[in-house]
Design a protein around this nucleic acid. Structure first.
Lengths: 183, 183
DNA sequence: GCATTTCGATACTATCTAGTGTCGAAATAC
DNA sequence: GTATTTCGACACTAGATAGTATCGAAATGC
């Protein structure tokens, strides 16, 4: 713990992380250069390397920062069908309101080369998955079926957003619930 | 049309395309160097540039080649539930038996930078989608619901294979059909 | 035989970029 | 005031690689 000297500028850290997310979303992981990130953040490369070990660590931190900001709401309305719809809608909103979708898309390919990115990427899914799994459980019956349901629901969203490059409307959450769990 | 001079060696073309698919699967799109591809194919860079405009075109051609080899079977058994299962099983088999899965994963991120890759990638999905859509139609009811079903079924597979890096068993096809279209 | 186009091999150029080093200035603790 | 660590700015190194040029040899049509 360093207590002597000029303290780290938290604002510089935040602007670095948001700039990282923006540039990675715009260029893709590999084409995102530290020079461009630093220019956009009004910062400098030494400022990066005082905080992170390298580019993968920086991008991983940017993802964690975006997730922490996203605050996943945990519904508990008693109406399971409604809870599922809320989680799905939040997921759609996260992809719509932040550059996270494109970042995730470009990182799916880069995760094999950079273990730190794989960890950060898994974190994106794990959080949503746990929420959705809990909400789906009472509707699904057994655990295996619940896992399958989560993959179908989340899979449909990821498929449309990441693979087909669509921007689903909020109503898509309701359509998914109606399709999978008809009354 | 060139009729004079030494003809193109089709074997060289094929070994180039398969080597491209292998290396891209192993390294990822950006880390796949033409030098490594050429070394594995026992070929040379001029041989590439006599055929393709550049790296994106080469990779796009490699995907088209893999798809053409894959021969998608069109089921027509009269039993719609069975037809859907067959298409899903073929899709799983394609991902299991060729390096295509990893290639698709790494290309999802690269498609935004290279339009040629986006076209090739869309082609991968379009073919499967048409098949699955036709099979699902009688079970889904209206067209909109059929589109949704395709996204859920295909989404679940892509989600597990590409995002969660699982290697689903063949039985997964049956589980999906049972979940979405219970008797 | 001759022109032409291919082949694989090799070398080269041009460019890009992650990461490091150094700087003067500013912000902290003591 | 002094020591320390930060800041952004700038320059630089080292490595990788897409793409081009050139080569002698081989395979075609005429």
């Amino acid at each position: 713990m360093r207590v002597v000297g000029r303290p780290r500028d938290d604002a510089a850290t935040v602007s670095l992380l948001t700039a990282t997310l923006t540039v990675v979303a715009k260029r893709g992981y590999h084409e995102a250069s530290l020079d461009e990130i630093v220019a956009r953040a009004g910062s400098s490369k030494p400022t990066i390397y005082r905080r992170y070990r390298g580019k993968p660590a920086l991008v991983a931190a940017a993802i964690r920062h975006a997730l922490a900001t996203a605050n996943p709401r945990v519904p508990e309305s008693g109406d399971a069908r409604r809870d599922v719809r809320v989680v799905l809608r939040n997921t759609l909103a996260m992809f719509a309101s932040s550059p996270l979708a494109r970042v995730v898309a470009t990182l799916i390919g880069a995760a094999d080369e950079e273990p730190e990115l794989a960890v950060a990427l898994a974190h994106v899914e794990r959080e949503r998955r746990a929420l959705l799994l809990a909400a789906v459980r009472p509707l699904s019956g057994d655990d295996a079926r619940a896992e399958l349901d989560v993959d179908m629901l989340l899979g449909a969203i990821y498929f449309r957003v990441l693979f087909r490059r669509m921007t689903p409307k909020k109503a898509f959450a309701g359509e998914l619930v109606a399709a999978r769990f008809p009354r």
